[in-house]
């Protein structure tokens, strides 16, 4: 910054920014701290900041009560499965639109985006009934399918904006050298596209992991993901704040870490490439 900011202004802005940031972060920080407290300490009338009696027993209790590992496994299967399936369908489509655009490509892209605007409740009831009749309710493959469909437009848009940035000349050169289409894709395009594909994968795993409409309405016990697992804590049963905090921490920790690494891609992915 060439702006001649005096040291006082800089200190002032820094203090203000950190103050607001910590205020925004407070609910997460509070959850982390509470997860390691005893239940009695968590709801004490004079609250403590750091756990006075550091304990890990909440985590064990959460596992015993609602089987965290089963739900975490379901979340991993659904979010990773739907993203990989989405990439399998999306990569060829985005490739075709980026490298062999026609007059209609823009319209197709806009149409794909518009499917994302359809409210989920508009189709909840038929999907629910179809799932019931096909015995897909509360199954991992059923949920994976829905998750693939709702994230497919974002996957294609993201891949498209990344593929667009690959210089076409290189592909032409490969084609001149007589590279088969298969070779063109595997040896030329893929290595250049891997960073974009990786970002797309990361963002969509996060989105699918946090999706909380279909995961709650279409599952009950067997295929419940972590969103359903947490929702089971919505009606308090006796002393439970510390356990709830432990369960929350377990549900958000993996994705929080992934999110921190992918925040740059998040901007591009969620604005459909409009802001970079």
């Amino acid at each position: 910054m060439a702006r001649a900011a005096s040291i006082q202004t800089r200190i002032g802005f820094t203090a203000l920014a950190w103050g607001i940031a910590l205020l925004l972060f407070a609910p997460i920080l509070w959850t982390i701290l509470t997860a390691f407290k005893t239940e009695a300490e968590a709801i004490a009338s004079s609250p403590t900041f750091l756990p006075q009696q550091f304990t890990l027993e909440n985590f064990g209790a959460v596992q015993d009560r609602s089987d965290y590992f089963k739900h975490a496994f379901n979340s991993i299967v659904v979010s990773l499965g739907s993203t990989l399936l989405g990439l399998a369908i999306g990569i060829p489509a985005a490739w075709a639109m980026a490298f062999a655009p026609t007059k209609r490509t823009k319209d197709v892209l806009m149409w794909m985006l518009s499917t994302k605007m359809m409210p989920a409740v508009g189709v909840l009831i038929p999907i629910y009934l179809i799932f019931r009749d096909l015995r897909l309710l509360d199954t991992l493959h059923g949920l994976t399918l829905i998750m693939t469909l709702i994230n497919l437009p974002i996957i294609i848009w993201m891949l498209y904006t990344y593929f667009k940035e690959i210089p076409v000349d290189i592909l032409e050169a490969a084609r001149m050298d007589g590279a088969e289409l298969y070779n063109e894709i595997v040896h030329v395009l893929v290595p250049m596209a891997v960073p974009g594909i990786a970002s797309t994968l990361l963002l969509n795993v996060i989105l699918a992991w946090n999706e909380a409409f279909w995961t709650i309405t279409l599952t009950s016990g067997k295929a419940g993901t972590l969103t359903a697992f947490i929702s089971s804590f919505s009606s308090p049963q006796g002393l439970f704040l510390a356990k709830l905090s432990a369960a929350s921490l377990l549900a958000i920790a993996p994705i929080l870490l992934m999110g921190w690494f992918s925040q740059k891609q998040l901007v591009r992915g969620l604005t459909f490439g409009a802001v970079k």
Partner: peptide, 26 residues
């Protein structure tokens, strides 16, 4: 730090606020 709340899944965000912050007792 600022982006973190966005990565918190909706049910967790809601329950953190409901019980940790907005509960009339504790």
């Amino acid at each position: 730090i600022v982006i973190s709340p966005f990565f918190v899944m909706p049910p967790v965000a809601a329950l953190i606020w409901k019980n940790g912050f907005m509960h009339p007792g504790y």
